[in-house]
Design a protein around this nucleic acid. Structure first.
Lengths: 209, 209
DNA sequence: ACCTGAACCTGAACTCAGTACAGACTTTTA
DNA sequence: TAAAAGTCTGTACTGAGTTCAGGTTCAGGT
């Protein structure tokens, strides 16, 4: 029944043309999200409670948790429209390519899709070390979809290889995020992602040191 | 001052010859750990509270948290003696090898060190999906040490490569753990770890599908 | 325009993880 | 054997996440 993956009770505003109900929900989602990011960037992740966020966003604590599974999710979750774009990216992905090439393309496409959010998110990560070792990361927001996508195109008997490729791609993406300085240009980030994927794809045993 | 990484107030029983104090602490650690694992395997991770564990182990809730940073930690943390062995492994590791080879050796050594615990841990993971998506994993227990070790031997300017290699090694290890059926032999697990590391090291772009 | 069902929001009450701390107790050391 | 240092415990607190009953708002059909 649930189509989206975020927002439980809210039936998830992903429809093509939005009714009043869905417009309001999307608006609520964004209000909560932006309020949260503002407060967290001002005071730090731990110093802001869900109560604070809800109040400041003009909504109840209960409602907050109906939009976001957890406090971290408000930082990492994709905007519903981004999520939709991401799913279109998955749906349109060519089927014939080798898995690693396909993943490289998808991850890069995703990175571009996140161009607006990532600088802020990375800055939050730097400001709030609590968020870092909370062991949740950006991959949590699109990981499940990508996992499904990979599973769907994986022939029986090849699951180990598929899982390894996927986890390694995540590792490469995370490494790029870790290494990136958000003061640098976003193109520089894209280069980092490309480099990491290329190195991992080419074989780490081969590189120096 | 803190030498260990787990156990805050308890000054950490890693000394060569143990005084009464340290022996008691090690005993308490193990009592809490084994009690926790027993209860969790009987009832599931979420169905057991820290209160339950502490009571059953004959210790106060406060004391539990002085031995383990979190509820998950009681599942993932290394036994103090295993931790010491792991650190000796790191200290004895040869310095001249290329990073990927060195990591391969270390990870395999670690896996052997964990031979006793891993089957049980993996069974817990299967029984309690909550534990899986808590996004904490076995790497949390030895990851920081390994990260330090890598940082120490990484020349300036090579941090990106080092981080990528480390994260990829983790990904390979995790993939092996995911794929392993604890009913199979532990040797089979070691083979999986070796395979994953070899594939990732050799270059995922090269492999089929 | 009105009715009805469904989706949504809310406050209240609850469980439990994690922290702080002061006082009691136990080992160490001198 | 007494002070110092380390450890345990109960208590009390904050805040995350869940449940639920009751009220409000929107959508679709008449």
């Amino acid at each position: 029944m649930a189509v989206s993956g975020q927002g439980k009770t809210p039936h998830c505003p992903v429809g093509r043309v939005l009714g009043l109900r869905e417009r309001k929900k999307l608006e609520a989602w964004r209000t909560i999200r932006s309020t949260a990011l503002r407060l967290i960037s001002e005071c730090g992740f731990d110093a802001v409670s869900v109560e604070d966020i809800a109040t400041e966003a003009g909504v109840s604590r209960t409602t907050f948790f109906s939009y976001f599974r957890s406090k971290e999710a408000v930082v990492y979750d994709l905007d519903p429209q981004e999520l939709q774009q991401w799913r279109e990216l998955l749906a349109d992905a060519p089927g014939g390519e080798p898995l690693w090439e396909a993943l490289t393309g998808l991850v890069l496409g995703l990175a571009e899709l996140l161009a607006d959010r990532l600088p802020l998110q990375k800055r939050l990560l730097q400001q709030s070390p609590e968020l870092c070792d909370s062991s949740r990361d950006v991959c949590d927001s699109f990981g499940p979809d990508l996992r499904d996508w990979v599973a769907r195109r994986t022939p029986d008997g090849d699951e180990l290889h598929a899982a390894l490729v996927l986890n390694t791609a995540f590792a490469a993406f995370n490494t790029a995020i870790e290494a990136w300085d958000p003061e640098d240009s976003f193109d520089h980030f894209l280069d980092l992602v490309r480099d990491c994927l290329r190195l991992a794809g080419g074989g780490l045993a081969r590189s120096v040191s």
